[in-house]
């Protein structure tokens, strides 16, 4: 069970959090300007790396805030967590 440091609340057990997938996927500003393939890339394609991964977590059973984390997908070591926009 992972130990995750919520940037607001500190270190808590994984069971307090929900996972939000890859970070940094920005919703296109003008979806209508995108081709179907480009829209599909935003919707479905993911980097899914083996190694360092920027991802989102939500302190669902705590402050309910979303934050970012850099975690290794093989060792599961969390290098850092950070407030979004920081």
């Amino acid at each position: 069970m992972l130990l995750i440091k919520c940037p607001w609340c500190g270190e808590r057990a994984e069971t307090e959090f929900s996972y939000g997938g890859e970070a940094g996927i920005t919703r296109p500003r003008d979806p209508d300007a995108l081709s179907d393939a480009e829209w599909a890339d935003y919707l479905f394609n993911r980097t899914n790396p083996r190694g360092a991964h920027e991802e989102l977590w939500n302190h669902a059973h705590g402050c309910r805030r979303w934050f970012g984390a850099e975690r290794d997908t093989v060792s599961y070591v969390i290098a850092r967590t950070y407030k979004l926009g920081s």
């Binding site: 929900s18 939000g20 920005t26 919703r27 989102l56 939500n58 669902a60 309910r64 805030r65 979303w66 979004l84």
Partner: peptide, 10 residues
């Protein structure tokens, strides 16, 4: 949760 996600992340 869905609404909060959009508000906070996007």
């Amino acid at each position: 949760a869905w609404l909060e996600t959009w508000l906070q992340t996007e």
